[in-house]
């Protein structure tokens, strides 16, 4: 078991403005799993993802990654842990606008003081189909291309876990499918554990396990026995999916 959440509760605000975003949530995710979390807007799925990734602090409960309680770590330790073990993909890409594609991708590595593995980065960029855009600034790219850069950046440090928060939320349907399939491909190619949030039922069906969340509680958590195979590799076409 790679990720384990124990009785996670997150409350925002206090008094009249108190909002309970997560209520006593527990879950386990195994290494190499591709899990999708679905739920309506405000159901607490993003909060759960942020807590799993160490981006926010739970009001109560624990998150264990590889058996270590990440909220027992000091602020900087947690940051370094996140940098090395967790990759994030956000709905609005969150690329650094002043850095070009290549610089964006290698930034987490540089921050870690590591020399980028050029072959790996190259293969990553090629796989994601953005190799030729390496010197472009994010503002010169389309939404889909920006999201690919964000995925490349999330994978640059070869993290064991990739957390994607509605990675298709800002993309059109065609590009959305491309991005999801890319994540699936990467899950298979690099054996990374992927947790993806979506409110799109069709996209959720591409995952091996689907967790449904409503009003801050997990309502279903089951293996997807009907993985949607309607996005065959060949549908995406082109060498970038090879």
């Amino acid at each position: 078991m790679l990720i384990e959440a124990r009785n996670l509760t997150k409350i925002y605000g206090s008094g009249e403005t108190k909002v309970c975003a997560l209520k006593d949530v527990s879950l386990c995710i195994d290494r190499g799993e591709f899990v999708s979390i679905v739920g309506t807007s405000g159901s607490g799925k993003s909060t759960l993802l942020h807590l799993l990734g160490g981006l926010d602090e739970p009001t109560s409960g624990q998150v264990l990654i590889g058996g270590n309680d990440i909220y027992r770590m000091k602020q900087d330790e947690l940051t370094v842990f996140r940098r090395r073990c967790v990759g994030f993909v956000f709905q609005d890409f969150n690329l650094i606008p002043i850095l070009n594609v290549y610089e964006n991708v290698i930034l987490p590595l540089q921050l870690d003081g590591c020399k980028p593995d050029k072959d790996y980065i190259e293969s990553l960029l090629t796989t994601l189909g953005i190799s030729e855009k390496r010197y472009y600034l994010p503002s010169q790219l389309s939404g889909g291309q920006q999201q690919r850069v964000a995925i490349a950046r999330a994978l640059a440090t070869r993290p064991e876990i990739v957390l994607a928060d509605e990675p298709t939320g800002n993309l059109d349907s065609k590009t959305s499918l491309e991005v999801v399939l890319l994540l699936k491909l990467l899950n298979e190619k690099y054996a990374q554990t992927i947790v993806m949030i979506t409110h799109n039922e069709a996209i959720a069906q591409t995952a091996k396990r689907i967790i449904r969340i409503e009003d801050g509680r997990i309502v279903t958590n089951q293996v997807n026995e009907h993985i949607d195979q309607s996005f065959p590799m060949e549908q995406k076409g082109g060498s970038c999916y090879d």
Binding site: D76, T79, V80, R84, F88, P108, L111, R153, T157
Partner: peptide, 15 residues
């Protein structure tokens, strides 16, 4: 937001 992003991708407080 920019600094938040840097923190998210692994920039420590010292950095």
């Amino acid at each position: 937001g920019f600094y938040g992003l840097l923190k998210t991708i692994g920039t420590t407080g010292k950095q």
